[in-house]
Design a protein around this nucleic acid. Structure first.
Lengths: 197, 197
DNA sequence: TAATTATTTTAACATCGTTAATTTTATAGA
DNA sequence: TCTATAAAATTAACGATGTTAAAATAATTA
């Protein structure tokens, strides 16, 4: 059944593209089978010729968005001074991406995968995304004796929980209330984690 | 319309009770109007005589669960040595409560309030819950010169984001994979936050 | 007991994801 | 080019969902 022909891939692409547009614009709760199909220019049942179910389609979007976020962060930090400064900037850019696309945050961190089996790699992808974005700079820091290995590990761990935690409270609970406050808080937390003695 | 008679309150209580049972047992996605009403012994439309909509009922449950979590934490930490040790224990007990009741975590931190206006106090409640649980001990620490005021503030802030962040990744993304790993990580992070110099 | 009010229930609507049956389109062989 | 067959897309339908309006029942009052 999985012929994976060019046409088949193209069709999948149409639906994925449509789903991504809705996700980006209106978030996860605005997505529906009929919604996506209409935007893709097909009937709702046609979708099921190319995806097992809606979940499969949605999770296809994740890998796409993962690359978008990676590009976004890299573009924004390509001129940052190497080392801790760059790590700082990467984390801020990463958080910024999700503030601009709350629907993608939902997808990455909140949406429950009902059937976990198949998507384990996808979950790994998300969990290690921020780590991967920073990896190169952490290596740089260790090689240049800016931080020790175990220090770096602890900081990575702190940041790994800090960012989703702050985003969750800001995007879903509006705490703090303004973006400026959010950014200020993130910067101060980061500054403290990275530069404490 | 809001007569608030005893009978009216009783009726609301029946529905709230039913909703809480489902939330506790099967989580938010298992909750439905017909579901709750059946468990409460009434028809589904009767619910709308006592609540504007399902959301209102669900958010009523939050205040109830808030007290349950407070009791849970207090009971679990009443014998802890005062000061940083007790703060440590409170945070761990708090996290533990949500691990045992993931549906309540969803309600507290994840579920999006579509109409924010009315529930602003409820959101404050959640945001400051852990802070409140620890407040007494932080005062103790400051008064006994264990920590300075600004140090304490920074630690409170770190913990405020750490706990939801870790819970989000563990409960919704199964990272880390086992509860033991989760607990170990939480303890090590807490230990570092509270005792770093 | 009769009339009125309050409460509860049933019926209905629009939406959702998904499947089966049906129609349309494309392909193959003559 | 016409026809038989395979592939693809569409419509119809099912069982859910939250919510509202109309109908039926129960409680209260005169």
């Amino acid at each position: 059944m999985t012929k994976n022909t060019i046409q088949e891939k193209r069709m999948r692409g149409y639906f994925i593209q449509a789903a991504k547009e809705i996700l980006r614009g209106e978030g996860l709760r605005a997505v529906s089978v009929r919604n996506i199909a209409e935007r893709a220019g097909y009937s709702y049942a046609t979708l099921y010729n190319y995806f097992d179910d809606l979940k499969e389609l949605i999770f296809e979007c994740i890998t796409d968005f993962k690359e978008e976020s990676t590009d976004f962060v890299k573009e924004r930090t390509k001129n940052s001074e190497r080392g801790l400064t760059k790590i700082n900037d990467i984390v801020i850019a990463y958080a910024n991406f999700f503030v601009q696309h709350p629907g993608i945050f939902e997808l990455f961190y909140i949406e429950k995968p009902t059937d976990i089996a198949k998507k384990q790699p996808t979950l790994d992808l998300i969990y290690s995304l921020l780590d991967k974005l920073c990896l190169e700079e952490w290596i740089y820091c260790i090689q240049n004796d800016i931080k020790k290995m175990d220090e770096a590990e602890r900081m990575k761990s702190e940041i790994r929980f800090l960012v989703p935690g702050m985003l969750l409270l800001y995007l879903n609970r509006r705490r703090p209330e303004t973006y400026d406050q959010f950014l200020g808080m993130l910067k101060s937390q980061l500054n403290y984690i990275l530069h404490k003695e």
